[in-house]
Design a protein around this nucleic acid. Structure first.
Lengths: 191, 191
DNA sequence: GTCTATAGCTCGATAGAC
DNA sequence: GTCTATCGAGCTATAGAC
């Protein structure tokens, strides 16, 4: 995949991805011209086309590693969970997976309805969203419990995906916040 | 404000706003050219400039009525609420206000980090977001309670703002869903 | 592997006729 | 109040030199 690298330096390819993520977060994906990415890297726009075949290819480079791993996780999962413990274990695994790729997650957080995404990526994300919600639902749930599952899965997803615009309490660390959020979600699931 | 109108027909201005909202939801704001709005209305791009001074002015026409009313509500509100009942009354009022303008809410739902918004509108929305969260916090709350307030306000806001991409249960009406969601939020606040 | 130059396109906005 | 025509800016992507 990659050539051998020296001590501290990253692939040019990786540098491009990292700078792109920063700019996509600031300006959005359609709002970030390739010229801006190039100038922040200190070289010209055309040079980007040596490393990526077009703009969407940069986006794919950022998102695909994470999306592939989510695909794999969802394929391993059973049709439905039948008990709360194994469901919770799955949710934690899913959450850890998301948190393991902050670069991709940052770009996912730009979204919203994400109409600007290439259709192939959009469809994958939508499939993940629907499937994870389905997997929170246990057999024999009432309407109230189903709706609550949707709300809580949504809450968990947002907790992994959003970092920037978050309302921060005094000196609370992100880890402490996450601990509180997850225990609230777990308790609400069990209630 | 408006000239007298015939029986069923809307202002051209209102027609433009309604068509724009539909297209903004489909393609996003930056992804919707004025030419598309014009063609869907059956007239030319230049005609739009008789009714609005530029593209952002259309967006303002959609959002400002709601944002103005939210501003007014937030100015009426006390510095902080001191009891759970008056806080809940405020939250219901805020929610009803949002639901009273589905057109504006649809456009707000496009967002996400909403970097595409004109700065003036973006700042207003951010102020609303922060202020409403502050108002959910009662004196003497623990860290856990503060975080839960953030989560629940966020949940409530999303319940008013999102319609489209929602995971729908069988034959459940939106009203039934909202009833379940609100009772969950209320219960979680009181817990 | 990076450059300059430019093709080719789309868009917002304006001018001016009707 | 709506039209045609067009300007000018900004963008993706490619060609071809080094």
């Amino acid at each position: 995949m990659s050539t051998k690298r020296g001590t501290g330096s990253l692939d040019t390819r990786e540098k491009i991805l990292n700078v792109s993520v920063e700019l996509f977060m600031e300006n959005g994906y359609p709002g970030t011209p390739l010229s801006l990415i190039a100038s922040k890297l200190g070289f010209s726009k055309a040079a980007l086309y040596y490393h990526f075949k077009n703009k969407d290819d940069i986006l794919n480079g950022i998102l695909n590693p994470l999306l592939d791993r989510i695909d794999a996780l969802l394929e391993e999962a059973p049709q439905r969970f039948t008990d709360a413990e194994s469901r919770w274990k799955f949710l934690v695994t899913y959450s850890d997976l998301m948190l393991s790729d902050p670069r991709a997650v940052s770009v996912l957080a730009i979204g919203g309805s994400q109409v600007w995404l290439p259709e192939s990526i959009y469809n994958r994300i939508e499939r993940h969203r629907v499937r994870t919600i389905e997997l929170t639902m246990l057999p024999g749930m009432s309407d109230e419990e189903k709706v609550r599952s949707i709300l809580l899965m949504d809450m968990m997803h947002r907790e992994t995906v959003f970092d920037k615009r978050r309302f921060v309490i005094d000196g609370m660390t992100p880890e402490r916040r996450r601990e509180i959020v997850y225990s609230f979600i777990k308790k609400s699931f069990e209630d």
